[in-house]
Every structure is written in C-alpha cells, then in structure tokens.
Design a protein around this nucleic acid. Structure first.
Lengths: 252, 252
DNA sequence: CGCGGATTTGAACTGAATCAATCGACGTGG
DNA sequence: CCACGTCGATTGATTCAGTTCAAATCCGCG
C-alpha cells in the first residue's frame, strides 16, 4: 500500500514493448535519446498510490504493463473511477498545478516515468511530442464521454457487459506492437480482470452486490465463464457487445 | 430545426466579446489576422443541428453566445448529453475522421466558425494555437470526469443541484472579459436555464419527471425560486453547492 | 379563445441499494 | 497439519429512490 516503488535503471527505449504506440513514438532518434535520458522505469504493486489527489504532480509516466485506475472520492466517502490507464497510455495531467484525481495501481504496474519539470520542458521544446500527447488526450476525452453514456443511461446488466467488453478490447490490444489497431475481437476471448468487484462497482456506479449478481447472470446465461481467480472466458464477444448496448434482450 | 444557419460577414476580432478568453487569444496580431481571415460569424437557432454524429467535421467554432449541447444517442433512442459548450469554448473534434457526437444548439447561438481543413492547417503551423487548444481539451477532460462522478454516484437531488450550480458558475463567467477567473459565485445569482427539462434529464441521466420533482423540492425548501419562463433565482449559491455535494441534508 | 408543447403532479411499479448471512481462498500461527 | 482469521465474493430478503404510466396544469401564440 505504501508509496514505495521499485526504482529500476534507465530504460532502453529501443527494446521497449510500447515503443511505437506510446507518446514517445512521436520522436525521432535524436529526440528519443533526450527523452530516454529523463525516463526511468519503475514498478508499482497493486494498491500503490501513484499520484495523489490535489497534490502537485511530481512525475508523468507511460504505462508499460498493468492497469492504473483514476479515481474521484467525495468527502462522504463515495468513490467513482473516472478512467482506466492501460499500456501504452500516458499518465498525468500536464500543465496543472495539482492532480485532478487519485491514480492507484489496480494491478502490479511497470511504468516509464518522467520528472514533472523536465517532461514539460520537453513538451515545450518538441511540438511533435506535444501533438502526440494532444491526440492522446482527445482520445481520452472521447472515451470519457462514451463512458458518460454508460453511467447515465445503461442498466446494471448493460453496464457490466460494457465493462467486460471494454476489458476484452483493451487486453487483446496489449499484444500488438504497432498502432491502435481497430481490430475488435469478435470470436472468443480470455483475459484476467484487472479490477476487484469493488473497483468494478466504482467504475460502473453500482454496488458490489449488483456487480456480483450481474456477473452471475451472465454466467448462468452462458455469455461468460468465470474461471479460477480473476480469469474470464468469453465464448462470443459479439454476444457480449450486443448485451452491452441493449440490442439484445434476455435469453433465459 | 433545419441546418440553415445565418451567415454573417467576416468577424472583427479586435472587438470580439471573447477575444481574450477563446483559443484565438493565443495568437499575436499577425497570426490573429490570418485566423480572422478564415473565420466567419454565424448564427444558429435553438434546435439547429450544428455538427452531425458520425459525419465528417466540416467546421470548427468558437462559441460567442448561447449554449450548445453535445449528445450521444443509442440505437434504441436513449440519449445522454456528454457536454455543454458555453462561450468562449471551442467546438469540434480536431484530427478525427468524423464527429464522435451530435452537437445541437440548446439556445440561439452565435459562433465564429472556421473551415475544417484551413483550421487544421493553422494548428499545424502555429504550435501556440495548438497548445491553447490542448489546454482547452485538458480542461474539458477534467470536466467530463468530474461529471462522471455526478452521473455515477450522486442522488437525483444532488444531480439537479449540481446542474444548477454548474449553470450559475458558467453564466456568471460569461460577463467577465479576461481569464477563466476562479470567481465562484457565493452570494445570490440569477440566470436563465439554457436547457429544457428533457435536456436536463438527458444531461443528468434522469427522467423529465424526476428533474421536475427535484426542482419543485428545491423550490419548496427555498433553495431556489422558479421565476417566469426559464429564469431561476438562487438566493444563496453556497447552499446550492452544499446540496450538490451532499454535505448538507434536508432542511424541511 | 383554443390549440399544442412543456411542465407539474399523482399513483403504482421495479431495478438496484441496503441489510444480512454464508462461502471460499489464502496466509499465519499454534 | 489443521484451526483460525481475514478479505473478497456470492446469495438471499427487504426496502426505497427513481421510473413508468396517467392525468392535470401552465403558458406562449396564432
């Protein structure tokens, strides 16, 4: 739980798993060397607080493996996850005095981190890097708004199906080395849930119990199988997708 | 309802009401002239569709007056407003093949519009302009995530109070000529609602009836007064804010 | 004056929350 | 090696906030 990441040495960008898909992919060799010089690989354990709410940002990061949750908490303890950060996403709010939310490792995480000031200087110097980060941010905004629909208008069943579908999409993408390929999985899919039931509830605006019940429903229907631990098997992703958007109705 | 805006002549940037607060405020005189040359002032009527969903973006715009709603609709007709665009906000999704959502005038709107390609060329040429738009986008992302908390975790009463508080903040800001001042209103406030009950419901993930009931509750409590037409009077904005965050409980 | 859309209000219903109990996996210590 | 405690997850029973269905009421406008 403590904020005590393992510091590894400098990263070798040339062999980096997310080299081409992350924001640093925007840079030419010369510039990449400059960015690499300020980057440092770190590991976090599930539960580690990576960036604290309302605190000055001390660093930015590219996620290499694992999942980070972005969370908002109100005074009376209600929580809402407002974003999930997967590889090769970028973590951190540029150009702000303080972080607008909590960033916590949902699973064990490896990330390439950059000191706050040095990175913002790079942004100012290399407009290509800023452009890449801008495009990234636009995509995050689209995703956030997509999720607003889920939160505001979908039923519990649709929410849970939407979540599973999202994870299936993102996890299937982790493998591919280039591009944000538009390769929607449509056949079968198998993956580990990066979140606990409590996290899923906080992401969907539901309670733990409702999430659990809906997962049981989907299992009973045969839409998903819950294997050992956090593992899920989806025999037909299209079916899941249609439940997520409410096209389909019950199937007993 | 038709897509038939009134085309006015070229705008005079020097006297523009939003000159300093909009993205164009990033530019030096020379560049401003260049941007002004491609800008054209247009007027839209309440209900006009400004940008259609899934269609190529034909133009971008700075909102000079009025309010635009950004809306998502599902196949079965459910709707969710995923953003409101006030002066001096920027409208349009840069660097995308198509619009990720519907943009419709909630009230009569005046906007300074820029042709798609010409504007994106300006962005490429002037990194200062791109930077300003980037900061804008970061703020929109923060706002979207803030709203995700409202949608996922707040009660109907809190949602309606949050909405009124948001409008009170934004409307009070329309007057000031510079900066995104952090001047939260805290005393009394009077404003026109830019949205119908149906729109408010779609923004809050509620039904029309629930919105109406909650407004009646707030009125009965004395937290707000509903004047003629769309006008609302809030004697104590702080009180509204505390209802919005759930600090406070009922007051009979 | 009367029409039509927007809004309010009422009554009944229901999906998800709440309250409560049990289960299962895992790690620790006797 | 097994009993125990903890934490996450499941399942059941009950409650309640918000929806749905239905009916007034209000209001701008020709």
């Amino acid at each position: 739980m403590a904020h005590d990441p393992i510091h590894l040495g400098r990263n070798n960008c040339a062999t980096c798993a997310i080299r081409h898909r992350a924001v640093c992919g925007a840079l030419a060799d010369e510039e990449l060397k400059e960015l690499g010089a300020i980057g440092r690989m770190r590991q976090f354990k599930a539960g580690d607080i990576i960036l604290a709410d309302e605190e000055p940002t001390t660093f930015f990061a590219n996620i290499v493996s694992g999942v980070i949750k972005l969370e908002k908490t109100s005074a009376d303890g209600r929580q809402q996850i407002v974003g999930l950060v997967f590889p090769p996403d970028f973590l951190g709010r540029a150009f702000a005095k303080s972080n607008p939310y909590f960033a916590q490792a949902a699973t064990d995480v490896e990330a390439c981190t950059y000191p706050h000031t040095a990175f913002e200087n790079m942004l100012k110097k290399h407009s290509g890097l800023e452009h890449r980060l801008f495009e990234n941010t636009l995509n995050e905004l689209d995703a956030a708004r997509e999720w607003m629909f889920v939160l505001g208008r979908k039923s519990a069943q649709e929410k849970v199906a939407s979540f599973l579908h999202l994870i299936a999409k993102r996890q299937s993408m982790v493998g591919c080395s280039h591009g944000h390929a538009e390769n929607e999985p449509s056949g079968a899919s198998r993956f580990d849930l990066p979140l606990t039931r409590a996290d899923i509830a906080d992401f969907l605006g539901l309670t733990i119990e409702t999430v659990s019940r809906q997962l049981s429903n989907l299992k009973r229907q045969g839409t998903i199988q819950l294997l050992s631990g956090r593992e899920v098997f989806v025999p037909n992703v299209d079916r899941l997708a249609s439940l997520a958007s409410g096209d389909d109705e019950a199937v007993a």
